[in-house]
Amino acid sequence: MSIASRPAVRKPGTGATRVRTFVAENGALVGLVVLGLALFIATPDFLTGPNLLNIGIQASVIAVLAFGLTFVIVAGGIDLSVGSVAALSAMGSAYMFSTAALPGWLALIGGLLVGTLAGAVSGFAVAFGRLPSFIATLAMLSVARGLTLVLSDGRPIATAPAVSFLGGNVGPVPMPIVILVIAGIVAALILNYTVIGRYMYAVGGNTEAARLSGIPVRRVLVTVFALSGLFAALAGLLLSGRLDSAQPQAAAGYELDAIAAVVIGGASLAGGIGRISGTLIGALVLVVIRNGLNLLNVSSFWQQVVIGVVIALAVGIDSLRRKTGH
């Protein structure tokens, strides 16, 4: 069993072994650093202020989506609906502002509520309807995208100023990066320091044992999907804020990037393992590769091939390490 073989102690040793242990336990981080070095050598355009800010902005949407998804994956589920829910939340918020003429800040909160609600519905279907999360969120993927189109009639809607602010700059600092950092800290605090966060690991590790220990498994599941919906909504608002308008086809297919980010970050789709820091690194790996390939003028067709290979390699190396590392 792979989760049992997670190295739990770091043996003190010589410098060389310590480096080796560090590399083994932080493969994704090491990969990211190597990637950065390679790009630094390959092109002078990589390590420049504007490009790094650009990477941060590009990473923000995927990372925030993936933070929410990390809760679900740690608890042993999957959420395929995050991209659609992001779009629905952004569209819902824009609709509240533009059509229902609500104040901008209320439209922002409304958008977050829409995402949370959509996630909670998936959560109820999983916890009480006994649907596998793959199916429940596949359904939500379709429902949320459909509602987005219904709401917008297939056309973009202008966002509230409060939402556009999320996509803008404060002085030289882009707001998406600020939000990325705050969302990451909040997600990590939830996962590591709250009771519900620790319960997520237990439910994902062994649902039956969790239930027999008195852990309210259903409540944990609903919470997990609601959180995923909330983070998806935040990502959707970021995305629409950058464009000043909510697009009906926004974030389509982003769920796959988000899943990739989480698993590159070392989480196990079997549940019980995963860290927010890993997910952040996973998202950065994806974005840095795309950015680097763009700088090197590699066609976007080939980029897809490279990304696919990287996902397979990252997870393959990780599971190989877990197997032999014991």
Binding site: R6, T194, V195, R198, Y199, A202, E208, A209, G272
Partner: peptide, 30 residues
Amino acid sequence: VQGLVLGASVNDNIGYATLASTAKAGVVDF
């Protein structure tokens, strides 16, 4: 199958039933 989360630590496994009752405002008393 029913008693333990095998991949989790001894500390976590011993604590599952008392995690909530000893927490303050939902934060684990580590």
